[in-house]
């Protein structure tokens, strides 16, 4: 490992987002990846809270750059100009961000301005030749693709649960603030309102970063109580198919699929879900897949590890009960 470290000793700029109440786990994972590959430089658009400062120290960052930009950084075009300036300021050879809708826009524009190669939803690795590589699972998890960069700099988004975050002995790090002027183009759209969704089910983890996901589809017939009961027994997030969202049974935020949230949890449990390609594209990177369905021919059974042919209204509460008992005993 020491040899690969010496080959990629560069600075790695990591975009820190959603940081008000401390660093969320996808960002902690990103900083862990960056620390393993080189020197992580955290990039933020806001001054860090005390909790964020403590988190950054424990994750072993080399430096924090706070971007002070003269426009609304919630506009992705504005944020991209700030991130670009920060990457150039520290001469980062690699820029990392978590996989979110807005970060996709930010990193694409950043890569364009940096003249850098871009790979979305991948894991950065150092190849046998010492070159930076992007490892990516595509086509609903059925192919593995490894890419290299032809450019001096590289930009990537990384999915949640790609690695396990780890901390080090907290170390002091320097903070610098850079002032950036946004271009006229970046400011050409106006953000009129920005409304945070009320956090429902505050005890459950966010879907995109959850290690356990229990999802329901049409087979729930609109009753998600069994799904929620098992989710709470596991400490899981609740997900849903597009059908269930379109029916108004659950919020859009819960939609898993190629046009919703992509999840890659340790365990995914799909109940009353047929496994349409759009849904599979958003969950097939899960490490273990469990399916519950009354139809023994349901396509999700073809890609799962464990299948229960049965009524989710019976099976999920019983599983939840046994898991609660197991937890109490151990």
């Amino acid at each position: 490992m020491t040899e690969t470290h010496s080959r990629f000793a560069g600075k790695i700029a990591v975009l820190i987002d959603h940081a008000a109440d401390g660093l969320h786990s996808p960002v902690r994972e990103l900083l862990t990846i960056a620390r393993d590959l080189g020197q992580p430089v955290a990039v933020s658009f806001e001054a860090p809270t005390a909790q964020v400062e403590a988190d950054l120290a424990a994750l072993g960052i080399a430096e924090l750059i706070v971007v002070d930009i003269d426009a609304d950084w919630h506009l992705t075009a504005v944020a991209a100009e700030g991130l670009t300036a920060a990457a150039l300021e520290c001469d980062a050879k690699l820029v990392l961000a978590t996989t979110t809708f807005e970060n996709r826009e930010i990193v694409a524009l950043t890569a364009r301005r940096l003249g850098a190669g871009l790979v979305a939803d991948a894991r950065p690795e150092i190849g046998a030749d010492g070159q930076l590589q992007a490892f990516k699972r595509v086509f609903a998890g059925t192919w593995d693709v490894v890419s290299e960069f032809e450019t001096e700099r590289a930009v990537m988004t990384v999915r949640a649960n790609t690695v396990q975050a780890s901390t080090v002995e907290p170390t002091a790090y320097p903070t610098r603030t850079i002032e950036v002027a946004a271009s006229a183009w970046a400011k050409s759209a106006t953000l009129v309102t920005r409304t945070l969704h009320e956090h429902t089910g505050a005890t459950r983890p966010p879907l995109a970063e959850a290690a356990y996901v229990v999802a329901g589809g049409r087979g729930t017939l609109g009753d998600f109580s069994a799904v929620e009961e098992l989710a709470d027994a596991l400490g899981a997030a609740v997900g849903a198919t597009r059908d269930a969202v379109d029916e108004g049974w659950v919020d859009h935020d819960a939609q898993i699929g190629q046009t919703g949230v992509t999840v890659a949890p340790r365990v995914y449990i799909g109940a009353g879900i047929s496994g349409a390609p759009h849904h599979r594209g958003g969950m097939q990177a899960a490490q273990t897949i469990i399916a519950v369905n009354t139809d023994p021919e349901t396509p999700l059974f073809e890609i799962c590890d464990f299948a229960v042919v049965g009524d989710l209204g019976e099976v999920l509460p019983q599983a939840a009960k046994h898991l609660r008992e197991y937890r109490e005993q151990s």
């Binding site: 003249g115 871009l118 593995d144 490894v146 890419s147 960069f149 032809e150 590890d305």
Partner: peptide
């Protein structure tokens, strides 16, 4: 002009057979 190059692309190995339990 491409900024990235695919160096390998391979189908993933078949998973272990599914364990099916009829409730």
């Amino acid at each position: 002009a491409a900024r990235t190059r695919v160096i390998s692309a391979a189908p993933r190995p078949e998973k272990d057979p599914v364990i099916v339990h009829v409730d």
